[in-house]
Computed example of a mutant assay.
Amino acid sequence: MRVVQGRTPVADVDELLAFLDTVAAEHDCVVQAFDPRYVVDEAHLHVAVDRAARAWRRDDAIARDPGVEVLLYAAGRRQISRALELGVPEGTGVPVVAVVVSEFPDEPFETDDREAAAAAALAAEWSEDEVLETATDEARVCEFFDVCEAERAATDASLSELVRERVSLLVVEK
Rank of each mutant, 00 (worst) to 15 (best):
T155M: 03
E138T: 10
A123Y: 02
G91Y: 05
V163D: 01
R58N: 15
D156A: 02
S81V: 09
R57S: 08
G76C: 07
E42T: 15
D65N: 12
I80P: 03
S158P: 09
V40C: 08
F104P: 00
V49M: 00
A139G: 04
P36H: 12
D106W: 04
L20R: 13
R140V: 11
R82G: 06
S127R: 09
E138N: 02
L17T: 13
T155L: 02
A117Q: 09
A121L: 06
P36T: 14
D60C: 08
A153N: 04
A157Y: 04
R37K: 15
V88Y: 11
V47Q: 13
L45G: 04
T92Y: 04
V39W: 10
P9K: 10
D113V: 12
D129K: 08
E143K: 03
D106G: 03
A117D: 10
A55S: 14
P89Y: 14
V70I: 12
T111Q: 14
L20E: 15
G93C: 06
R164H: 02
V40F: 07
D35V: 13
F19G: 14
E69M: 02
A61M: 12
E15W: 12
R164G: 10
V3I: 15
A43N: 10
D156W: 00
F104I: 00
A124Y: 05
A150Y: 03
V141F: 11
V94D: 14
V13Q: 14
A33I: 05
E165D: 11
F34L: 14
G87D: 05
S158F: 04
P95Q: 07
R140I: 04
F109A: 00
R164W: 06
